[in-house]
Write a protein that binds this DNA or RNA. Sequence first.
DNA 1: CGCTGCGACGTACAGCGTACGTAGCTGGAT
DNA 2: ATCCAGCTACGTACGCTGTACGTCGCAGCG
Lengths: 193, 193
Amino acid sequence: MRLIEHEGVGAVSMRRVAAELGAGTMSLYNHVPSKIALLDYAAEQIMADIEPYTVETDDWRDHMRAHARAVRDHARKHPRAFVLLATRRMSGDVGLRPIEVALMNLERAGFKGEVAVRVVRAMVSYLLGTLTREMATTPELGGVALSPYQPIDPEAFPRSSAVLDELGRYDHDMEFEFGLELMIKALEQYSEG
Amino acid sequence: MRLIEHEGVGAVSMRRVAAELGAGTMSLYNHVPSKIALLDYAAEQIMADIEPYTVETDDWRDHMRAHARAVRDHARKHPRAFVLLATRRMSGDVGLRPIEVALMNLERAGFKGEVAVRVVRAMVSYLLGTLTREMATTPELGGVALSPYQPIDPEAFPRSSAVLDELGRYDHDMEFEFGLELMIKALEQYSEG
DNA sequence: CGCTGCGACGTACAGCGTACGTAGCTGGAT
DNA sequence: ATCCAGCTACGTACGCTGTACGTCGCAGCG
């Protein structure tokens, strides 16, 4: 985990890990069947370390906001490790816990059964999408910090060039909250109609 | 592209590509500065190949549905190649064109300027999230096709075990449309109030 | 005492990206 | 006609990767 957070997933090699542990390279294989399994385990660890949120009200919206923000906070604290979660599918208790929490909360909002599962999945998709994109733009290692847009041809892309400033600016806080509120609005309306 | 689609991004090596082209490995470097640049170019190609949607009405909702479905259809046609888009940020004309189309359509719905950009980004995040997840579960190469959930402890996870069947089933069509309609509902409400 | 199993370790192999040096050809300048 | 610059192709080599395989020593048990 230390290696991942300091130098990124790409820096993880069996030789590096073994050296960091002061052990022989192949000794690792007595504890882990393959490198993939090692990274799977690291991903589980990251997922398990997401801090449980606390909230004072009983409003499902506040719970949803708090839960989403807890995930995002965790991602921002471990940006290089978080990418491991994007592609992996978690099947154990570790992956089930946040789902259980979400289902519990959605029950408050009147969502049950199949629909609740769909809502959870839509939410997870949005979260994974924004956070993956946000982490990809953090300046540390490879991320583009500032405006990646050269002057745009206004004839070919009139709308884009009209909002060129906004396209080049990234206010991740704002954008995250915007998308989150969008989802909440949608769910409010869904549960009513 | 042939190599990516048949054997996945992981099978792409400079030696393989060169062999496929009947050329020497290092000859590739006369046309491409690095392997990363090669994959960047492949990603651009994939993005450029997304088929423009056609729609008969002027309703922004129908346009949004058609656009989203066009992206998904493309992703499903080239599942192994599509993952290249998840992490990359496109800055040229190729990346701008879909944005321009989206902005044009959002104008119909009354979204302009900064807000329109935020809507586009939220939409892109959702699309990238669902499609990444969907592609990760396609049975071809590495995907888990059927229920990955072992029997769940009903005491620890009562809600999850109540919907165990749904958790194990993936109806990607349904789920995609569900999330899409959720976003549309949210935007409708947003533009009204 | 001897055996069995497990953890640690070194060696080796096939493959990777690419830096570097070296050819051959081709078009323009002299 | 001659020469040279620049482009493309290619082979070799370096340092890295994941891991299959064989060996060694030690701990626990019959």
